[in-house]
């Protein structure tokens, strides 16, 4: 782990007061989103005010981790080249969580050419540094 940490050169999230609960939950391998305590609407990414009712009262709820594929790309030309050279081709996707919000992620456990629209997915967690865990998604075959 420590060696991997030393060489991890990809972008890492810089936590802020709104995002810290999200990333802390990821580190515990939990996928959490914000729900408005007044109108009940869920939202992602986390913001201070509910865009539906403007309430600032919120709670963090754990998402089921199930999602469907909304859209995706297959990155074949690495940018920056030295950082992603060994990763291409890789799949970046927008997935729709069961709770109704959309989230950018990677699709893993599946060849890029086998990715299809609306395929069922489930969340997995990748510990990329001791502090940061990224939520990625794989085909849900179960």
């Amino acid at each position: 782990m420590s060696e991997a940490t030393m060489t991890y050169e990809k972008p890492l999230p810089v936590l802020d007061p709104e995002s810290t609960p999200f990333w802390e939950a990821c580190r515990e391998h939990k996928l959490k989103i914000v729900r408005c305590l007044d109108c009940g609407q869920v939202r992602f990414p986390p913001t201070s005010f509910c865009p539906h009712c403007n309430s600032a009262k919120l709670e963090w709820i754990e998402a089921s981790g199930k999602a469907t594929l909304f859209s995706w790309i297959v990155v074949r030309h690495p940018v920056p080249k030295d950082v992603y050279a060994l990763d291409v081709p890789y799949v970046v996707a927008l997935v729709t969580l069961e709770e109704g919000v959309r989230m950018p992620t990677n699709i893993v456990g599946c060849a890029p050419e086998d990715v299809t629209a609306y395929m069922p997915l489930k969340v997995l967690f990748r510990d990329v540094t001791p502090e940061i865990t990224l939520p990625v998604f794989a085909p849900d075959r179960g």
Partner: peptide
Amino acid sequence: AAYNITQYTAPFG
């Protein structure tokens, strides 16, 4: 360095 909204996009390449 993925600040603000970029923290949800850039880490996934």
